[in-house]
């Protein structure tokens, strides 16, 4: 069971109040992109054992989207942050580096 804090309304609740929205920080490749880029955007997903970045929606609460960083093995939640960003905030990355030295997720390390 995950305990997530919604950065939009400040509620700390367990995961049944939220809904997972898949991997975070995907870059869209649409019409005109190469087949390889489009395939990567559409199908290639991380499935890490350890640090993971995800999108979540506070579905029965405020209804807003946000990002969460967590560990898929221990279910520890490192932090949540705004949906209006293309990369995790630096202070959150510092926290994760301290707790999981040497972690790598796509091009984030």
């Amino acid at each position: 069971m995950l305990l997530l804090e919604c950065p939009n309304c400040g509620v700390i609740a367990e995961e049944t109040e939220f809904h997972g929205g898949g991997e975070a920080h995907l870059k869209r490749f649409g019409p005109g992109s190469s087949d390889q880029d489009f395939e990567g955007y559409l199908f290639q997903r991380e499935n890490p054992r350890g640090v993971h970045f995800e999108r979540w929606r506070h579905v029965t609460g405020c209804g807003k989207w946000f990002h969460a960083a967590r560990d898929t093995v221990t279910l520890e939640v490192f932090g949540t942050y705004s949906a209006q960003t293309v990369e995790p905030p630096e202070d959150l990355l510092e926290t994760i580096r301290a707790k999981r030295p040497g972690f790598k997720w796509r091009d984030i390390a």
């Binding site: 509620v11 609740a13 367990e14 049944t16 109040e17 579905v59 029965t60 609460g61 405020c62």
Partner: peptide, 25 residues
């Protein structure tokens, strides 16, 4: 609801949108 309803955590004037069993409330 998955909410801490103790008087300290949910005092008068609090308002909470959440899940009641399987539906939003």
């Amino acid at each position: 609801a998955p909410v801490d309803m103790s008087p300290e955590a949910f005092p008068e004037g609090s308002f909470r949108r959440t899940r009641l069993a399987q539906v939003p409330a």
